[in-house]
Nucleic acid binder design. Structure first.
Length: 436
RNA sequence: GGUGGGGUUCCCGAGUGGUCAAAGGGAACAGACUGUAAAUCUGUCGGCGAAGCCUUCGGAGGUUCAAAUCCUCCCCCCACCA
């Protein structure tokens, strides 16, 4: 592994390639040279239209974290300016326009999420908002100074536009302008922070290259770009989609337990790839996963889940989720030699269901008994009473581990075990009910 | 602005007066098999304490014993023309 001179650190480019972050790059050799020197900055844009990031943003987040770990300065750029317009791409309904207050509130919560992965102290990383320069842009000067460098002929040949131009929905003028705005972002970051590298999803290639061109034309300097592959699961689904919708990084929207469960349920074929992308465990250890199967591979999934949860929610939350999973699904030893750098080895699996979804019920109400289907619906294990009936009819509803025979079986105080009732829907979804 | 086509249940997509809570596929859920995996097979898949009732087919009205299906107006999308 080549080491960049002086820093004693692994070269960012090598790390990104090795861990599967790279789809394509511009000028490979020059880019490597650019990153030979420590303290380079590198930016990625984030969309501030929601108040939380989700798993889909994890690849860019991890990439920025690697930027920092390799001795460079990551810049997270929140698209406050572009968010004010509302990106219409691929959306069936018009996205609601966000006001500046919404954007800055979202930017704040996004920053606090990023802060778990990236150290923002002492300018070791920056969080910027492109509204700072886009909001005051004047149209005529912009066209004269920036617009003249763009050839429409070239733009419409860009892959990202091509598809839209040929599709039924077409391409709106706003969307067409995103390339200019994003190129301008890059220029501004280059001017203000000496940022010479932009990374982004593979759909951003055209926009990134446009920024590089703009910098060359207006500043006669080189800048670089890296795109990430689109990460899909081996079964073809996009990352982070579940029946409940997106898997969020915000603990209030997706609990650490559910987050942990999402990762444990990783497809066999994805475990190794995901360990490389979504944890910081050494590649030497991750490569050994290649040879695993059966129970060992399952253990590797728990390590993946533990590490990913630790990154997003901290060590304590990861432990709780892990222990909760152990008490619901069984301990399942993690072999000592497996991915041994993980903190999962520093605490034995214990039974502790603190992270299991739970709620309370009034004692009196419970004593009079509640039909099973009503209870399942009420605690949120099913979406409706009808769904709960079906669940019980199909034998998918369990009370303290026993299958519930009829949808109207009464659940009452006599079912309390150590002060609580454990409900289960299907094989994986648990809910703990205690009396208040 | 004109002409033509279209908006159907989570998604795609049939359905052109009753047999429609609406074909088919996908997704999802449950069961069996397993390893909290995949694949496969079976079942389910609007709501409601059964029969039955209620709400749904872009929106609002109307015709009819009866409408997703017919009529009127409106909204939105697409194509071509201007």
């Amino acid at each position: 592994m080549p080491i960049s001179e002086g820093t004693g650190m692994t070269h960012l480019i090598d790390v990104l390639y090795e861990r599967g972050f790279v789809e394509q790059t511009t000028h490979q050799d020059e880019l490597r040279e650019y990153l030979d020197q420590a303290g380079r900055s590198c930016y990625i844009g984030f969309d501030p239209t929601a108040d939380s990031l989700h798993i889909g943003s994890l690849v860019p987040i991890m990439a920025l974290a690697h930027v920092q770990r390799c001795g460079h300065i990551p810049i997270a750029l929140v698209g406050g300016g572009t968010g004010l317009v509302g990106d219409p791409s691929g959306k069936t309904e018009m996205r609601k326009l966000l006001g500046p207050e919404d954007i800055s509130r979202n930017a704040e919560s996004i920053k606090s999420q990023l802060a778990r992965f990236i150290d923002f102290e002492k300018d070791r990383a920056l969080l910027l908002n492109n509204a700072d320069w886009l909001a005051h842009l004047e149209y005529i000067p912009f066209l004269r100074d920036v617009g003249r460098h763009f050839s429409v002929n070239r733009m419409i040949r860009a892959e990202s536009y091509k598809m839209r131009l040929e599709s039924d929905e077409g391409l709106s003028f706003i969307e067409f302008n995103y390339m200019l705005l994003q190129a301008y972002d890059f220029l501004m970051l280059f001017d203000r922070h000496g940022c010479g590298l932009q990374m982004g999803g593979s759909d951003q290639w055209g926009n990134i290259v446009a920024g590089i061109d703009l910098i060359r034309r207006m500043r006669q300097k080189s800048a670089f770009g890296i795109t990430f592959p689109l990460i899909t699961t081996s079964s073809g689904a996009k990352m982070g989609k579940t029946e409940k919708g997106a898997v969020w990084l915000d603990a209030g929207k997706t609990s650490p337990y559910d987050y942990f469960q999402y990762w444990v349920n990783t497809d066999d074929r994805d475990v190794q790839r995901f360990l490389a992308l979504f944890t910081f465990l050494p590649m030497a250890e991750i490569q050994e996963v290649e040879t695993l199967s059966g129970a060992d591979l399952n253990a590797a999934k728990r390590v993946l889940a533990f590490e990913a949860t630790q990154l997003a929610h901290g060590l304590e939350a990861a432990k709780k989720a892990y222990h909760a999973a152990a008490s619901m699904f069984g301990k399942g030893e993690i072999p000592a030699g497996l991915l041994s750098s993980s903190a999962i080895h520093k605490g034995e699996a214990e039974f502790g269901d603190a992270a299991v979804p739970r709620s309370t019920i009034d004692r009196k109400e419970l004593e009079s008994g509640i039909p099973a289907f009503q209870l399942f619906c009420r605690v949120g294990l099913t979406a409706s009473g009808s769904a709960a009936r079906r669940l019980v009819d199909q034998g998918g509803a369990y009370l303290n581990g026993e299958r519930i025979p009829n949808f109207d079986t009464l659940i009452s105080a006599k079912d309390l075990k150590e002060g609580a009732i454990l409900l289960r829907a299907g094989k994986k979804r648990y809910h703990k009910l205690s009396v208040s």
